[in-house]
Design a protein around this nucleic acid. Structure first.
Lengths: 241, 241
DNA sequence: CTTTTATGGTGTACTAAATACCCTATTGTG
DNA sequence: CACAATAGGGTATTTAGTACACCATAAAAG
């Protein structure tokens, strides 16, 4: 397939001969803390936007990373220690405005983690989002506030027809805790028995026989995730009011 | 905000000092012909994969393109003449294997067009897909077969809960023609009266008063798209068997 | 030690929006 | 003129939600 001419072409090909955009990976890391959706941000150490808050990310290391998902996982691991989180690509954003260094493309991922299992570095913090996915704290570097908002919209939308909220919980949890997570993400109340039917009917959680958790009132049955798939998809959206 | 130090940094910043990936945009253009989903492919004129079939695409022109969607629209217009098609970003694919020139990231878009309104250039053709989204003709350059398959899965999935199939039809169409398009995309038969209720209930199509179309049997009412949104989203998926 | 209260857990009536199946109308064709 | 084929639409059934009521249980209050 590969002709002599083609080999010649590839030998002479040098990307540095062309005007190319910057290409980076950013990652919106979600968790739930104090009954709010939170996002992990850190204070930048380098130009541009030095000393501003931003979401984790950076350039693809074309020596070390085999693919872009690996770049995202590497960044996530650096900031949270997580190696197997829920991770989904949100999409690419690219234009000539978003980075002062020039034309820039970023591939954004979002991850769900359990806040209890993350140890924060210095200059790293959880920042709560309001009901529209706006970050309530400081203004962020680049277009990161916009990326967070888009990721939040995707998260909320997916919570309506999948089991995505499972991924912010620890290994063991009660159904009320799970419902609470859905309600926080969806921004409204869910019907209890409808929710429990929906969750227990599919093969998405299983009782941990004999284990229950002390709450403020009566004991609650503990569950764990079951099924192998990352997400279970429902035929209908759930209704939060 | 912008300090002297930062200005200095930006002045000295040169992307050519770094090892960066190639970044391109590819576009999967769908239409329906002969009761099959088709994809537009063309014969490559340049290395690598010269003389192989591929989907349209290319590098971002950082002088002319303001953002990646513009790059995609530019490529689409070159091949089809369309300036306002249904266009959606599928996502980014990036790894060190897909392009012989080196580490490569591509942002894939997919578009829906009406085949009748496209004039094919030389070295350009419509190629039908089988029921799994596999291209039935030749092997394609790069990982383009894989990109097509992923785009087709997204298209089929969206046809289950949105009005996406509207975008492969001409301005005027009958409900039977619309149903046929959905069936082709979904790969199964739909229930007629259920389908008509679903379509006519939302504000997605409107009768063209007094206009009807001759079919092989009785006259059929003509409709046009209505509503301003690109897509209408339903709460439930439709069921094709 | 009893009562209150908050939450855990479940059952039932109602409802929305599908599917499944049926019927009638219209027009070209043998 | 009967018949085939598609347009167009009606109704019963099913599915999976919402709304709401009810009992259980353990901590806290009196």
């Amino acid at each position: 397939m590969s002709t002599k001419q083609e080999k010649e072409f590839l030998k002479n090909y040098n990307i540095h001969d062309y005007d190319v955009p910057l290409t980076s990976v950013d990652i919106v890391i979600f968790s739930i803390r104090n009954e709010q959706v939170n996002v992990l941000i850190f204070k930048r150490n380098d130009f541009p936007y030095k000393d501003n808050w931003a979401i984790p990310g950076g350039f693809i290391n074309i020596k070390r990373d085999k693919n872009i998902e690996q770049t995202a996982l590497r960044k996530l691991k650096e900031k949270t220690g997580y190696t197997a989180p829920y991770l989904e690509q949100l999409g690419a954003t690219g234009n000539n405005k978003r980075d002062p260094r020039g034309w820039s493309v970023t591939v954004t991922y979002f991850a769900l983690v359990n806040a209890e299992e993350v140890e924060l570095d210095e200059d790293t913090l959880w920042c709560p989002l309001d009901n529209d996915g706006h970050i309530t704290q400081s203004k962020l570097a680049f277009d990161h506030s916009e990326l967070i908002k888009e990721a939040f919209q995707r998260l909320r939308s997916k919570a309506q027809y999948t089991t995505i909220a499972l991924h912010v919980l620890p290994e063991k949890f009660t159904l009320s805790e799970l419902q609470k997570c859905f309600e926080i993400i969806l921004g409204g109340k869910l019907n209890k028995s409808g929710f429990r039917r929906r969750i227990t009917k599919g093969n998405v959680v299983e009782e941990i026989k004999g284990e229950s958790k002390q709450t403020t009132t009566r004991m609650a049955q503990l569950y764990r995730k079951s099924g192998n798939e990352e997400l279970h998809f429902y035929m209908r959206e759930i209704y939060a009011r």
